[in-house]
């Protein structure tokens, strides 16, 4: 067994960084070397930013987004359409929709999808909170923006059923040909869904 070439502090840092998505032990070592070599410009600001995020970031009790305030900036923004809620699976989906400026409504992050294989049931998701929000007077439309996967759409149908007695319009995202997609490369199911959802030109 070879003797360790770094102290326990650096070793721990490497181990922790190696747990991040996209990084393994080798790339974590490279990142740590890079940080140590740029102590002033990177390591100390990163340490400060991590500490600040760890202290201040909270999950919004209203929509499930993450922010430094509760309720989050999206929920408290007066310029957003108060009657529109877009339901997404994860915070990363919310960020994707915000990047695309696809909607000016508010959001509701479920925190996952129903998945019997992974043991995720309705009680493990923020579904009850969504139903409660949907019954508020000002809400007129709920957009179900869940992934076009079997699990995502099972969750979408389940949520839609629970919203049946709320006085809201429930819509979902279209399925079909993606921008830049070539018909020749699309699977049969996507092509069939695109044909069913065709619109007047």
């Amino acid at each position: 067994m070879t003797a360790p070439v770094t102290g326990p502090e650096l070793d721990r840092l490497i181990q922790l960084l190696a747990k991040l998505p996209g990084l393994g032990p080798r790339s974590a070592r490279r990142a740590v070397l890079h940080l140590v070599e740029r102590r002033e410009q990177l390591l100390q600001p990163l340490a400060g930013a991590l500490r600040e995020a760890a202290d201040k970031v909270v999950v919004c009790s209203r929509c499930g987004n993450i922010d430094t305030h509760d309720p989050c900036a999206v929920c408290t923004d007066p310029r957003r359409e108060a009657g529109l809620i877009c339901v997404v699976e994860q915070v990363s989906d919310l960020w994707a929709l915000e990047r695309a400026q696809a909607t000016r409504g508010r959001y509701h992050v479920l925190g996952g999808t129903l998945s019997p294989l992974d043991g995720v049931g309705p009680d493990d998701l923020r579904i009850a909170g969504l139903v409660e929000r949907a019954h508020a007077k000002e809400i007129s439309e709920i957009i179900i923006a869940l992934n076009a996967t079997v699990e995502g759409q099972t969750t979408a149908h389940y949520v839609t059923e629970l919203l049946a007695d709320a006085d809201v319009t429930v819509t979902r995202l279209a399925h079909g040909v993606p921008v830049g997609g070539e018909l020749d490369y699309l699977d049969d199911g996507t092509l069939a869904a695109a044909f069913r959802a065709r619109t007047p030109f």
Binding site: H157, Y158, D188, G189
Partner: peptide
Amino acid sequence: ARAASLMDSAHALYGF
């Protein structure tokens, strides 16, 4: 590929 046709209806998804 059956997934897309399953996604069309709640009863098909629940059945699966």
